[in-house]
Amino acid sequence: MLTMGSIVLGVADVRRAVAFWTEALGYVPRDEIEDDWVVLVPAEGPGVQLALGLSESPVQEHPRVHIDLYATDAADQAAEIERLLALGAQSVDWDLYPEDPDFVVLADPDGNRFCVIDTAHG
């Protein structure tokens, strides 16, 4: 039986991505940070690893795979979005929102899309 090992994001600047994602998620590098690769793990307890690898591929406007980050309610979602924007995330002008979305699409400093979801939303 297979288990999930890591989610891997391609990034243009590994060290910049490490700075953003460690602060965003409370993760730490598992090993020494290389210029082309690093694996981040939760600072405390279990969780999915996030690997960041140097990539020259262009960012996808509508990626087929992305990360969902969960907030406990609308107030927590708003606070987390504000915090992530202060860390260097970017607002995304997302053209595929449904009528009453429970998520907000942001991009990390490398342009990788991710969602912040209000898990208490109707």
Score class of each variant (00 low, 15 high):
M1L: 12
L2S: 15
T3S: 15
T3W: 09
T3K: 15
T3I: 14
M4A: 12
M4K: 01
S6D: 03
I7V: 14
V8A: 08
L9S: 04
L9F: 06
L9P: 01
V11T: 06
V11P: 03
V11F: 03
V11L: 00
A12Q: 13
A12V: 09
D13L: 07
R16K: 13
V18Y: 01
A19M: 08
F20M: 12
F20S: 13
T22L: 03
E23L: 11
A24I: 09
L25P: 06
L25I: 08
G26P: 05
P29K: 00
R30A: 07
R30Q: 05
D31F: 07
I33M: 03
I33E: 00
E34G: 11
E34N: 14
D35V: 11
W37V: 04
V38E: 02
A43W: 01
A43S: 08
A43K: 09
E44F: 07
E44G: 02
G45E: 03
G45Q: 08
G45V: 04
P46K: 07
V48L: 14
Q49N: 02
L50C: 01
A51H: 02
L52D: 01
G53V: 08
E56C: 07
E56T: 15
E56P: 03
S57R: 11
P58A: 12
P58S: 09
V59Y: 09
V59M: 05
V59T: 00
Q60P: 00
E61C: 04
E61Y: 00
E61R: 12
H62T: 12
H62R: 15
P63V: 08
V65G: 07
V65C: 06
H66E: 06
D68W: 01
D68H: 00
D68A: 08
L69C: 03
Y70G: 07
A71N: 13
A71E: 09
A71H: 09
A71P: 11
T72F: 04
D73V: 10
D73Y: 08
A74E: 14
A74P: 05
A74H: 07
A75Y: 04
D76R: 10
D76T: 10
Q77L: 10
A78K: 12
A79R: 14
A79I: 12
E80G: 09
I81Y: 05
E82N: 09
R83H: 12
R83E: 11
L84T: 06
L84K: 03
A86R: 15
G88T: 07
G88W: 09
G88N: 08
A89R: 06
A89N: 04
Q90E: 14
Q90M: 15
S91T: 14
S91W: 08
S91P: 13
V92Q: 03
D93W: 08
D93V: 15
D95P: 06
L96H: 12
Y97A: 12
E99A: 15
E99N: 10
E99W: 02
D100K: 15
D102N: 14
D102Y: 08
D102R: 10
V104M: 11
V105T: 10
L106T: 04
L106H: 05
D108G: 10
D108P: 11
D110A: 12
D110P: 08
R113K: 05
C115E: 05
C115T: 06
C115P: 02
V116Q: 08
T119Q: 13
H121W: 15
G122W: 11
